[in-house]
Amino acid sequence: MPNVKDTNPLSLDNQVCFSLYSATNAMVRAYRPLLNELDLTYPQYLAMLVLWQHQGISVKTLGDKLHLDSGTLTPLLKRLEVKGLVTRGRSEKDERIRVLEITQAGKTLEVQAAKIPDLMRCKLGGDPQVFSELKRLCDQAYQLLDSAK
């Protein structure tokens, strides 16, 4: 019997959202052992990636870059502060604005984290161009969904 494509729009096999969900879960699981060595969760790692590039940014800017609201971001930042990786202060220009600074421990962690992207590439294998295209498509999907809200 020939392999017939399921045309049911409610079939799990036809759901792009499920493919993205499954890939995301698998990606986070792949990162977990590497991040455990740094005592970071995946969301904390993403926040640190931004902070390593943008020292002294505001909490709002970090939230924009991570696509997180303050209700999600604040507890994450408090945990990073308790770990001694960041400090939250006030902007010198506008005291209403909270700014984030990386501590020396946070800078040391950056050196340790530098190996993670290469380790993940090894885990994923494959053609780097494929991953660039996948990232582009995911970014495009995000932009389309974000603008539709």
Rank of each mutant, 00 (worst) to 15 (best):
R29D: 14
G106S: 09
K93I: 06
Q53D: 15
T87V: 09
L51T: 02
A105W: 00
V111W: 01
M1A: 15
G84V: 07
Q143D: 09
D94S: 09
P117G: 04
K83L: 11
L51P: 08
V16A: 07
V99G: 00
E81A: 14
S22R: 14
Q15D: 10
K65S: 07
L134P: 03
M120R: 02
P43W: 06
P9N: 08
K83G: 07
K149F: 13
Q140Y: 11
Y45F: 15
M120P: 02
S132M: 07
Y21P: 01
E95A: 12
K149E: 12
L109K: 07
L10T: 08
Y31M: 15
K115F: 07
G89H: 00
C17V: 15
G89T: 06
K149V: 09
A30S: 15
S91P: 01
W52I: 07
G125T: 11
E101M: 07
N14T: 05
Q44L: 11
R79L: 10
K5L: 10
G125E: 09
T61V: 13
E81I: 02
A141D: 07
K135G: 05
E92P: 00
T103V: 08
H67I: 07
I97P: 02
L51A: 01
Y31I: 06
V130H: 13
K83A: 15
A141V: 09
S19E: 12
N36E: 15
L35Q: 05
V86S: 01
F131M: 06
V111I: 13
K83E: 09
S11L: 08
E133I: 04
D139Q: 13
Q55H: 15
C122Q: 10
N3V: 14
E110G: 06
D94I: 05
N36R: 15
T87P: 00
D69C: 06
L40D: 04
W52K: 08
G56A: 11
L62W: 01
A30N: 08
N25P: 01
L100V: 11
K107N: 14
T61Y: 02
L34V: 00
L144G: 04
T7R: 09
L73S: 04
V4I: 15
T72D: 10
R79G: 01
D118V: 05
V28G: 06
